[in-house]
Design a protein around this nucleic acid. Structure first.
Lengths: 357, 357
DNA sequence: CGATGGATTGTAAACGTATACGCTGAAAGC
DNA sequence: GCTTTCAGCGTATACGTTTACAATCCATCG
């Protein structure tokens, strides 16, 4: 950046962005601060002439409004928070991407809080709800029954919340939410295995507390029952929703006295763990054991064998949840409660075959 | 929630969290608002007795400080922003995890902005730097040369920034940053291939603008030169850092008149794409083409074949970057600029073999 | 007992913005 | 030319907190 003769120097030096407030702009433009504020927020309320003066002054000073003061004054931060189990899970990061797209379009920033597959502690949730650091919350992570209580009690008067991906517990049934038909999808997956002549079908879930997979388990059980197939003790197993957890669970499943010929995994992450563990044990997928996943993360099709799974429109879920939240924030009224169901799809690849035995 | 006889009703009803401010608490405790504020922020400055009174009042009213007002007054939001190419990339989400851990420990929230592997626009960066919505920035994403200019000019007076993962361009050399020795690591990876008797080694990079992979390319070239191996036109190819991009690039590489026997990929995501594309073409990894990745994301070892790659301590990078940023924020001085190098490691799995031809 | 001083508390200003309200002036209607 | 009207603008206040400074209190000491 070259030094220039002083008469050529523009007022707007990049260097000095000190503490220029609306007051300085007003002074320079020879108007009141109210007018400056109006120029920025309601330009139609101000004469062309003054607007130009003010714009000029803004440019000269390099003024930009103090976001903190604005937030404070308006009682709005234009930040939303999303609570999710893990940023690392490709499914959730896809949902996040959708959220971001919508958020950006609507002028929101997004804070996130990952619970690392644990429940969010009630304190945290409570603190979140009451501190007005955010304008709304998208809940992608499971909550303890107690938080539900907090939520339904407090949020009546406080923060807008929309629930994504999760099944909601009965108390929250009338919360706005967007998700696929988890029960139906799980049934579909299970039925597909049944249609491939499997009879000994196990299911790998999340932690017992995980609402996320409760419905999927429910759908699985329903399909099995409908087909009059038994579910042996130990076939419904906790894989922790992670690769590592799944590997451990898979070992148990493979050692089961009545080894299943197929495993339905509540997410792809676990399905990948399953496959890897099975292969490590010297068996083959799908020849020896068939696998069905859930989510259709982008690794599902590059894994070996490519994974048959339930595809969820993750981006869309995120986007819709965000837009819905926006509507809630804008109209302070309780508009449109209840679930919004987005479509899922069974995508058949090569991790399922008819059982050999 | 049942109605109860009025004499049993506790003051602290969950229902009414209306607008109780510090004033209300002060009134109830019979002290001034200054004292209430002190009780919260500097309890040692206040008598045991009054502190108890105030605590009681706080409990009674269910008061919690208005974060917005605090932020406004203090000029601090306790929010940091991290700019990264993509939340979806497991490597970056691992870095994020590290950042979150440190942030949580230090009482910060984190906003993120993903550039979808594009450069952040200068406007966005500028806006970010000037709006005081965040206390500091961790840059994980590449910037255009012009943003560098903005950055070095503005940040002198404004926001603390630390750079993670990326190589920094010369102008920013004295910015605090934490990353591995990218050049060294890339050399190591390339040398490993050379030690396995490969001579025709290609490299898949990010977009030309991507600083992220510049150093890796540099290391690769250096190693090739040192071994006196030629780099044919078309061997250094843009794989976009994504699976899809890598697949396309791999097709080009396989059709190359002088087909490489090994490909060094600047990240694992691309390596996975490579492997998948090669297998789709009916060839085998590593028999026909060897692959080395970069990052050691958690899918690297479950892919088939398990991927030989450079392991980066992603969590640690995130944590350190965050702690460093905190130090910068707290001490407003320019403490400790310059790079902080964390160790990397070549982890050998099964995606490399000696070339058959 | 009065003075001194340190600890504790209260008073009041400030942070930067948005906006209700009132004032001014000009255009429009008579 | 007078009144009416209303757009355009300024004045002043409020938002909830923190904090410099002043005021008060109490204990200790001379």
């Amino acid at each position: 950046m070259k030094k220039m003769p002083v008469d050529f120097v523009v007022q707007q030096e990049v260097e000095d962005i000190p503490d220029v407030s609306i007051k300085e702009v007003a002074r320079l433009a020879g108007v009141s601060i109210a007018t400056v504020s109006r120029c920025i927020n309601k330009p139609e309320k101000v004469t062309e002439k003054t607007r130009l003066k003010v714009q000029d002054a803004i440019y000269q000073t390099g003024y930009s409004p103090n976001t903190l003061a604005q937030s404070f004054r308006r009682g709005r931060t234009n930040i939303v928070m999303v609570v999710l189990p893990s940023v690392g899970d490709p499914f959730f990061s896809a949902v996040m991407r959708g959220i971001r797209v919508a958020a950006r379009a609507k002028g929101y920033s997004v804070i996130f809080e990952d619970t690392q597959f644990n429940e969010m502690t009630d304190d945290e949730l409570g603190a979140m709800l009451v501190s007005n650091q955010v304008d709304g919350i998208i809940l992608l992570a499971s909550m303890s029954p107690f938080s539900n209580e907090i939520l339904s009690a407090k949020s009546r008067l406080s923060l807008p919340v929309v629930i994504g991906c999760e099944t909601v517990s009965p108390e929250l049934a009338n919360f706005p939410s967007v998700h696929i038909d988890n029960i139906g999808a799980a049934k579909e997956a299970t039925n597909y295995l049944i249609s491939q002549e499997h009879q000994r079908i196990a299911m790998m879930c999340g932690q017992a507390s995980s609402l996320l997979t409760k419905d999927r388990e429910f759908g699985y059980r329903a399909a099995m029952k409908q087909a009059k197939l038994p579910i042996e003790d130990g076939w419904v197993i906790d894989g922790d929703l992670t690769i590592a957890g799944a590997r451990k669970a898979t070992r148990n499943l493979m050692n089961h006295v009545n080894r299943p010929t197929a495993i339905f995994c509540a997410n792809d992450e676990m399905a990948i763990g399953c496959i890897h563990e099975i292969k490590s044990a010297g068996l083959q997928v799908p020849r020896d054991i068939s696998i069905v996943g859930f989510d259709d993360i982008r690794y599902a099709e590059v894994i070996d064998p490519p994974l048959t799974t339930i595809s969820q429109p993750a981006d869309e879920i995120g986007e819709r949840a965000m837009y819905r939240l926006c509507r809630r924030i804008d109209a302070n009224k309780d508009v449109s409660s209840g679930s919004e169901i987005v479509p899922h799809k069974l995508v058949v690849r090569q991790s399922v075959a008819k059982p050999s035995s």
